[in-house]
Design a protein around this nucleic acid. Structure first.
Lengths: 364, 364
DNA sequence: CTGAAAGCGCTTACAG
DNA sequence: CTGAAAGCGCTTACAG
């Protein structure tokens, strides 16, 4: 008797003697009924094994697990989902950051989901559109997502978070400050990293420094930029507002920012760009002007994307462990529903400075 | 009566008079039973409307559609999937190409899936591992995927394709030659594009030319490289084998390839790198040696990723419409099962040369 | 520790 | 053109 031929008698109860396991053919399509019948227990007991219930006799469990393994049985996620009233899908919602950022985040999340039975559904969106929250809500509700990972900038949107709360979909927000209860947050301490960049440039001897930030509406702009300015300030360097350029986290805005800053007098001897893409733009502007890096200009970036080591000279930057962040967020979603503990501290990651070849002491 | 309060009497038949629509509250959780009962038709008829069956009286259809819209009803994909024995998920399977490539492909696929009720599940894998085919098979079978998009290099793996055929999962393969029946292929005519690069460099007057290919195991290597060599050959230039370097489609291999080629005598006046990442590596090697681009060395890349316009000088390259490829592949999967037509031609896309600032006539 | 019944929200197979 | 019954493969609620 094969597992599949047995399906014609699915509705009978499991009173027949268990056939010798050798008779069973691996079809990869066994169901809970096959497992129940062939092991001589009820569907419910098989279900208990699937769901790791402790209320199963160890021997029974072993017998069931053995047959599952032999048949290559895995429960049907759709059937489980229908009964559970939720799916085994994790959504990744984001609004157009750089390709490398998205891909690393995906790899991280997938690291955590591997062999968990959960899958990752990607959902880019455009947060500048009026109805984007409604559209994410529909996505999450329709797919009955088990959880959602939100990355900047959508992670900073309070309305999106409350829309998800309303429909009872769990989420983890990755952001540069704690915005939510600890169980829903992964915090990257961008402020400290910004300060580290400031300390580093000051310690090299730089006094005239330019800053290219991200867009004002990103929290990371406030944190990275604020940390940087605060760090300089603590060391007695006050950076005049006209040495700050608001970029857009894009290559082109890095070029524009550097064009602006390098035209100033006195010309800055160092520029901190709040991501690597913009730092690459700074390289381009510097080359155009015939300025050498780091001889005439030190550059520090942020992210430590592959780009950073591909630039020439290799870029000094802040290493942001994006893949780890994705992994942590996904892990938190797989974890059992935590009791909201108001006193708990959110998981926090502090990016670290990586010194390469784009920075040195300024020329005397 | 609200849609949700009605759920307590789900098992009754729809004999009660239809309540005034104004009484109905939008909960976003209406079911097919609610729609059936409130419109006074059977579930089956509602199901026909959902599935665009022509066997529904137009008036009935209108009535049903109107209520669906009013209640914000969308069928539960899990329940549909369970009954259909397949899900509404499209898998994207790939083996570690560049971040930009993956992300563009995802955007393209999502373009086609938008508002279709289908979602995109990403599935990177490592094709160098022994059991990767088995693992993709499990993924596709377990999730009962509606279809799979395969991109190079996994798209070129005949064993993977037949594993998917065996379990009855549709797929579309994106590759640089027709490998399968037309309905399962999107072909990028890399060979022609390679030839175009050759013609271009020859027409500029280059005679000593270097080639950095992808890895031998990629079909695109044979096509791009072969097209390039063939194009040169037709114009009377035969490229000596020691001016060909087998790269790995990575930045570092581009650096290594250029180091190798630029050390040769006579030094090539132009290099064709088979993707932009490697072309960026060529830039680095050239800069290290103090060679100016395009003054001392013309460089042509392949892909036209954002990197190409970010390099300085901007890279002359072959524009590969990756997002379009993703969109086409996903569209083909959404289309009704086509009858295998042996005579049909696969959809073909020919990448085009984009001339920027990294190429010019060689110095006399 | 175990199980029979009912249900999750749909569709198929059949009948009319 | 329409519908009642049975089923997809699981779980919940209840009972023992």
């Amino acid at each position: 008797m094969t597992a599949s031929s047995s399906r014609t008698r699915r509705s009978r109860t499991a009173a027949t003697p268990t056939p010798a396991p050798e008779d069973v053919v691996l079809t990869g399509k066994a169901t809970i009924n096959d497992i129940a019948r062939l092991t001589g227990v009820s569907k419910k007991t098989v279900s208990r094994v699937i769901n790791h219930s402790p209320l199963v006799h160890p021997e029974t469990r072993e017998k069931v697990l053995a047959l599952m393994k032999q048949l290559g049985y895995t429960p049907d996620p759709q059937a489980r989902g229908l009964a559970f009233r939720r799916s085994f899908l994790i959504g990744l919602v984001y609004d157009n950051p750089t390709a490398q950022f998205i891909v690393n985040m995906q790899y991280g999340a997938l690291d955590a989901l591997r062999d968990s039975g959960y899958e990752l559904v990607v959902h880019p969106c455009d947060s500048s559109k009026e109805d984007y929250i409604e559209s994410v809500r529909r996505f999450a509700q329709q797919q009955k997502l088990h959880g959602v990972i939100l990355i900047p900038r959508v992670s900073e949107d309070e309305q999106l978070a409350s829309a998800l709360r309303e429909i009872g979909v769990r989420y983890v927000r990755i952001a540069s400050i704690p915005l939510d209860q600890a169980a829903s947050m992964v915090v990257t301490h961008d402020r400290l990293a910004g300060t580290e960049a400031a300390n580093y440039l000051e310690s090299l001897g730089h006094r005239t420094i330019g800053l290219i930030t991200g867009p004002r509406r990103y929290r990371s702009t406030i944190e990275r930029g604020g940390g940087f300015l605060g760090g300089l300030d603590e060391r007695g360097i006050s950076l005049s507002p006209d040495y700050i350029y608001e970029g857009g986290y894009t290559f082109d805005s890095g070029v524009a920012g550097a064009e602006y800053l390098l035209a100033k007098s006195p010309r800055p001897t160092a520029i901190f760009a709040c991501n690597d893409e913009m730092a690459a733009g700074v390289y381009k502007a510097a080359m155009r002007r015939g300025l050498s890096i780091p001889g005439d200009l030190s550059v520090v970036g942020y992210d430590d994307s592959p780009l950073a080591s591909q630039l020439w000279p290799a870029l000094t930057t802040i290493h942001s462990p994006i893949r780890d962040l994705g992994r942590m967020a996904a892990q938190m979603l797989l974890t059992d529903e935590p009791s909201p503990d108001a006193g708990a501290q959110p998981r926090t990651v502090t990016p670290q400075l990586v010194v390469r070849d784009s920075s040195q002491r300024p020329k005397p």
